[in-house]
Nucleic acid binder design. Structure first.
Length: 583
RNA sequence: GCCUGCAUAGUUAAAUGGAUAUAAUAACCCCCUCCUAAGGGGUAGUUACAGGUUCGAUUCCUGUUGCGGGUGCCA
């Protein structure tokens, strides 16, 4: 469709030159004015002539009429004027042949803009905190991040996915203390992260209790807790390389990671690096020193800050009063390390929109430090998740673990699947793809900036605009192709509207991919998939494919089905979904 | 206070400044002797408010209201 639009634009530019005079409008200008009519009965491509009215000094209606009479080409079956719009109807058969031919020729590269070749992108996403629950709140960064990675790979970029694990900080002091007091190796090896979380929650409660007690004893004094003090000591020991604590820490990390891997595996996600916060601890002092040397640091109330008044932002804290580092410090050090190590052309950070200010601040600091690559840093924020209308809160227990969510989805799907697929192994395989896919699809349907209210019933439903619907459609294309007697290729058989609409939908895929990349917006792909699935299903219902008696038409229809199959598979992959051949 | 995001059928969501604002869902009604009914078709129902820019505004600007987030020693 893109090519046709370009061709239309140059055709129009020439015609305008001829009828209205030299140098009025370039082909590129006209191209941006072309659009798709809301109703296909009007046409397939349209040029609104209102803006032309001033430069061409005629009424829009007249312009449309003049152009309609003077533009023609064999790609169009008709060119007509209507209310100031110039409408082009595309020749069905020729157009479909070309589109299907493109898909056939390019295969799983069809739709790729290929503008990332030779460039490198690092993506920072998912990044759960070790020994804390991996819950539904992490779904956004995980699937948006991975989808963006896949999209960039599709565009030819060399991609590097980083899971910036929250694997450092005072919580490990607490965990070490809790483990020494109440922990038990076997229980944790068996229970995994859940057991670590239990220990963490328990010690936090204990600390809170101790602090309250201390206040009761001495209402005017500072609250104190021996356990908290002990935790700080243990973390300091860890920082200083205490071998015993290091060993425990490594173990906590590996236990957590092992469990996260299971979820990642269900999603088909692999990371290229798991370098977490701990990795960058020794890389911060150099950056702090650089800030100091450049005179960017100010001491305010004992803390070291970078003043950002000029940019209408609050100060960026670099060092606490006690000299310890903060989140921005680590992010800056990590960015510098990654630039040197991976030589990225773009670094993408996928986090909740709550962190938008934080990113704006440290991006600015990086700029002030004179790193010329500051404009290669991109923050991709997304809206807050709530579940069934309630905010996520560990305290109130409104926390849904990702593994539980997926398990629930898989179980529900299996209920239906087992009727069609009695073999338990096959049933489970399908249920896993469809169950996980349902959740992912539901999440990625939304514009990422919108706050999402995760309604369990909707996320796990199978009707309408859902993951199961599109996967089912994909399986349907597979089933048709399996039954087809010939490979199928486009012929000169006359095509009806539904067939043409399907071809049109296929032709628009590259444009949607471009839009998704430009906006860092996977939901554009998700919505495209729905359009394509709907177009295919209508085609499927109205047209007999393998049973079609006209040999030429059958061949064309099979070819169309194969093209739909290819594009659905490509698109599903780009939003982290599997393409089951049977459902 | 300041900064920032969001506001569309009962509900969840679409709509590069363009034509009659799309879908899904819930409700009602059709379609399996037919390539997978997790499907297709039909009926009914929407742009928070007030201005402005424009030939034209759901879209851009200003203000109001409502909800969310951020705002110096958490990440």
């Amino acid at each position: 469709m893109l090519i046709l639009k370009k061709k239309t634009a140059s055709l129009l530019a020439e015609c305008i030159k001829e009828k209205f005079g030299e140098g009025l409008l370039s082909s590129d200008e006209i191209f941006t004015m072309l659009e798709y009519p809301p109703d296909t009965s009007m046409g397939d491509i349209a040029l609104p002539c209102f803006r032309l009215s001033r430069t061409l000094r005629r009424s829009p209606v007249q312009i449309a009429e003049i152009l309609a009479e003077n533009v023609s080409c064999d790609e169009f079956s008709s060119v007509s004027a209507l209310n100031g719009y110039l409408n082009f109807k595309v020749n069905h058969t020729a157009f479909a042949s070309r589109v299907v031919g493109d898909v056939e020729r390019l295969g799983d590269k069809y739709g790729s803009p290929m503008n990332g070749v030779g460039k490198k992108v690092v993506l920072d996403y998912s990044s759960p905190n070790v020994a804390k629950p991996f819950h539904i709140g992490h779904l956004g960064t995980t699937v948006i991040g991975h989808s963006l990675k896949l999209l960039h790979e599709f565009a030819g970029y060399d991609c590097f996915g980083i899971n910036y694990l929250g694997d450092w900080g005072t919580q490990f002091g607490k965990l070490i203390v809790a483990y020494k007091l109440w922990g038990d190796k076997e229980t944790i090896e068996k229970g995994g992260v859940d057991e670590l979380v239990k220990l963490y929650v328990r010690i936090n409660n204990e600390i809170k209790r101790e602090e309250e007690e201390s206040l009761l004893k001495d209402p005017d004094g500072k609250k104190s807790s021996p356990l908290a003090d002990e935790s700080r000591r243990e973390f300091t020991a860890l920082e200083h390389g205490d071998e015993k604590n290091l060993e425990l820490w490594r173990w906590f990390v590996s236990v957590s990671l092992e469990e996260y891997q299971k979820t990642y595996k269900q999603l088909g996600i692999e990371f290229d690096s798991y370098k977490g916060e701990s990795f960058y601890t020794d890389k911060m002092p150099a950056q702090v020193q650089k800030l100091r040397d450049m005179g960017l640091l100010e001491i305010d109330d004992g803390a070291s800050i970078v003043n950002l008044d000029k940019w209408n932002m609050p100060v960026c804290l670099i060092l606490k009063r006690d000299g310890s580092t903060l989140y921005p410090t680590r992010d800056i050090a990590a960015a510098v390390y990654r630039k040197n190590e991976y030589k990225f052309d773009k670094a993408i950070y996928v986090t909740s929109a709550q962190q938008s200010l934080h990113f704006a601040q440290w991006f600015k600091v990086v700029e002030l430090m004179g790193y010329e690559w500051h404009d290669e840093l991109v923050h991709v924020p997304y809206g807050t998740v709530s579940v069934n209308g309630m905010k996520l809160a560990t305290r109130t227990g409104n926390v849904v673990l990702l593994k539980d969510l997926f398990a629930e989805a898989i179980e529900r799907v299996a209920e239906i699947t087992k009727e069609k697929h009695p073999d338990p192994k096959e049933c489970l395989e399908i249920a896993e793809k469809v169950g996980v896919g349902a959740v992912v699809f539901y999440y990625l349907s939304n514009n990422r900036m919108r706050d999402i209210n995760f309604m369990m019933e909707d996320a796990l439903s199978f009707d309408g605009n859902t993951g199961p619907y599109v996967q089912y459609t994909y399986a349907r294309t597979c089933s048709v192709l399996e039954k087809a007697d010939v490979k199928g290729e486009m012929t000169d058989a006359e095509l009806s509207d539904v067939e043409f609409e399907l071809a049109k939908c296929l032709s628009v895929f590259p444009e949607r991919i471009n839009a998704a990349l430009a906006d860092y917006e996977p939901s554009i792909v998700t919505r495209y998939i729905l359009d394509l699935a709907a177009a295919f299903n209508r085609f499927y219902h109205e047209c007999k494919i393998v049973g079609c008696e006209d040999e030429k038409l059958r061949s064309s229809r099979i070819a169309l089905t194969r093209a739909a199959n290819q594009v659905l598979r490509t698109a599903l992959h780009l939003i982290c979904m599997q393409s089951p051949e049977k459902i």
